[in-house]
Design a protein around this nucleic acid. Structure first.
Length: 599
RNA sequence: CGGGGCGUAGCGCAGCCUGGUAGCGCACCUGCCUUGGGCGCAGGGGGUCGUAGGUUCAAAUCCUAUCGCCCCGACCA
């Protein structure tokens, strides 16, 4: 029997001053967690019970599709060099040396370890497919840990990896995960969304994020008000609203006009009495990518968008197969555009051919040192007679038509979606919300199997690399998201499936023998019926116990009080505050009817 | 890494500007009292004022350095 009087449940009347988001304040106040350092938390009794229950659900559902391993946290440098991520991960990876001076790191994720097992052991197509998973602590040296458990440097993650013979097999493994994740998050009682996600500059073809909407979240999610379209900001698109082009002036050729001091889109548009939608916005970058020698390679890129749109740098990175972007310095603008910032434009540039996007080799010069990638946002395709910078201080062009007056390397979707734009599927309005990412599934492709030399023989005796997927779930984030979605000023309530206890029995007056013994009997009776019960038998005033019961996330409370003389107790549902009188002999049956559906 | 803020008892804070006995609320301990929403009364314990150096007769307070934590931004396959 779990007696509150004998347990360590350090509840606080006030939240720590440095807690900002609801889940952080409440998890600390309720005695679930305590902070040890920036982004490092201890889980106390209640917190541990909740996370253990979450892991139990994850394990049950994952066991239906895969096999659980337990892999090392400590990884040798050589392993990560094989995949190239020893350098790619940069400062986000915790690194250390052993006594002999050998480099090690703490695992951020386990593609390398899993692949190293696969390459040693998997020999034949007959052994595939495989799905291997683990529930393990991961380490990431976040530049800025924040928001309690939402962004931390050490956290528990369920991560799994699939190995298949071909893309069709990967589809099956991917779908198995998709379904398992839905079951897991359903069972955890979360109101989640599945969104299309950016699949990364490192390759990979398809990806979904599982997210929970909350103001505390850091992900931006675009979703349709009407249909089921949903995607994260890095991936989302919208229908381009039609714009009526300006009429050509003069002979219709680009016309140089004096626009003194009007370097910003808004100023130019106002000066010329047109909408920013008639302007071409230019953003010039140096795209970066680590070279084979570990040094950063750079090449120039300019993006052209409609004046009222903004660049989605993640889309641009993906398009360019680059790892980083930085905006051009003044002298670089001068070099490539012969013009100052605010007045750069597409006319007269030296455009790299489309093939150069695939052959990412900035060291290879194609004659003209001014040549660069010119990326046109698709919203500009088909437009005519636009306004743009003339690559000359205080001058713009009118009458500029893409394709006629300037060429470009490629036209693609590189803009960010704005709230209220039209859904690409159904045309209804799009909304943007913040959300917490709780799970991510990802088609990896051949990146790791190829770079690390995993090979199996196919049916024809030919050696092929297995195709991989990787799939993650943040255990603590499930708890955090659950708290974020169900709390008030008095505390929070968890679904019974992940709450540390399903019921808290409050003996309102422990000085009263009848009340105390009845509370104990009810607790024992429910426990034998398989209900997880916490008995609050502390010698405290009722108010103290009610406040604590409201605080600590337990979904049901039984008040054992004066009504025992009537053979009656109150059952209070934390989420609604609804109280029901139940006869004591019927209490067990009452919860047996209530809980299974709520679990 | 850039900008801002904060380190004083377990938690929340005051004191610092203007140097001189370290304080308040909650929590904790003892006793009494009370028992349906953090009850009341009385008594009590607990702090090298983040750390190191400096200035001074004297430093929580002024100066310097350093460490830690929080927030905004950058960053976040």
């Amino acid at each position: 029997m779990h007696r509150w009087s004998e347990l360590f449940i350090p509840t606080l009347r006030e939240a720590p001053a440095d807690a900002e988001v609801a889940s952080h304040k409440l998890l600390v106040r309720s005695g679930y967690i305590r902070q040890l350092g920036a982004g490092i938390y201890s889980f106390l009794f209640l917190g541990n019970r909740a996370t253990q229950k979450i892991m139990g659900i994850v394990r049950q559902e994952m066991d239906k599709i895969g096999q659980e391993f337990h892999l090392p946290t400590l990884h040798p440098r050589e392993l990560w060099e094989e995949s190239g991520r020893w350098s790619v991960m940069g400062d986000n990876m915790f690194r250390l040396k052993d006594r002999k001076g050998a480099d090690l790191c703490l695992g951020m994720t386990h593609e390398e370890v899993m692949t190293s097992i696969a390459r040693k052991e998997l020999r034949s197509y007959k052994q595939l497919p495989q799905i291997w998973y683990q529930i393990q602590t991961k380490f990431r040296d976040e530049p800025r840990p924040k928001s309690g458990l939402l962004r931390v440097r050490q956290f528990i993650m369920k991560d799994s990896y699939s190995f298949d013979m071909d893309a069709a097999g990967l589809d099956v493994s991917y779908l198995k995960h998709y379904d398992a994740y839905c079951r897991i998050f359903d069972r955890c009682g979360l109101k989640y969304m599945v969104v299309e996600a950016h699949s990364g500059a490192m390759g990979g073809s398809q990806s979904h994020e599982f997210v929970v909407r909350t103001p505390a979240g850091e992900d931006l999610i675009v979703s349709c008000e009407k249909c089921n379209y949903a995607a994260n900001m890095e991936k989302a698109t919208s229908k381009v609203d039609p714009v009526e082009d300006l009429k050509p002036e003069g002979d219709g050729k680009p016309l140089l006009i004096h626009t003194p001091g009007k370097g910003a889109i808004a100023d130019v548009a106002e000066f010329l009495k047109v909408s920013p939608k008639q302007d071409i916005k230019a953003v010039a970058y140096m795209a970066q990518k680590p070279g084979a020698d570990g040094k950063t390679q750079e090449q120039p890129v300019v993006a052209f968008l409609r004046g009222d749109h903004t660049v989605n740098e993640m889309k641009l990175l993906t398009l360019l197969k680059a790892s980083d972007l930085r905006t051009m310095q003044a002298e670089e603008l001068e070099k490539y555009f012969q013009g100052p910032g605010g007045y750069i434009g597409p006319v007269g540039l030296v455009v790299k051919p489309k093939e150069s996007l695939v052959e990412w080799d900035p060291t290879k010069q194609d004659g003209d040192p001014r040549s660069m990638h010119v990326v046109l946002d698709e919203a500009l395709a088909g437009r005519a007679n636009m306004i743009c910078g003339a690559n000359k201080l205080d001058y713009h062009f009118k009458n500029v038509t893409p394709g006629r007056d300037f060429q470009y390397t490629v036209a693609a979707d590189i803009r960010s979606v704005n709230a209220g734009e039209d859904c690409p599927n159904c045309g209804a309005s799009l909304r943007i919300d913040t959300a917490v990412e709780i799970g991510h599934i990802f088609k990896l492709g051949y990146k790791y199997s190829e770079s690390m030399g995993a090979r199996v023989l196919d049916r024809n005796g030919k050696e092929v690399a297995p195709i991989m997927g990787s799939y993650g779930i943040g255990i603590e984030r499930i708890l955090t998201a659950a708290v974020e979605q169900s709390n008030d000023e008095n505390g929070f309530w968890l679904p019974p499936s992940i709450a540390p206890f399903e019921v808290v029995v409050v003996a309102t007056n422990t000085g009263d023998d009848k009340i105390r013994t009845t509370a104990e009997e009810i607790t024992r009776s429910l426990e034998t019926a398989g209900v997880e019960v916490l008995l609050d038998d502390r010698d405290e005033r009722p108010g103290v116990k009610f406040k604590d019961a409201d605080l600590v996330g337990i979904p049901f409370r039984i008040n054992v009080g004066k009504k025992v003389t009537d053979d009656t107790v109150e059952v209070v549902q934390r989420s609604t505050r609804q109280s029901t009188d139940v006869k004591i002999p019927a209490i067990r049956e009452y919860f047996q009817g209530l809980l299974p559906s709520a679990r």
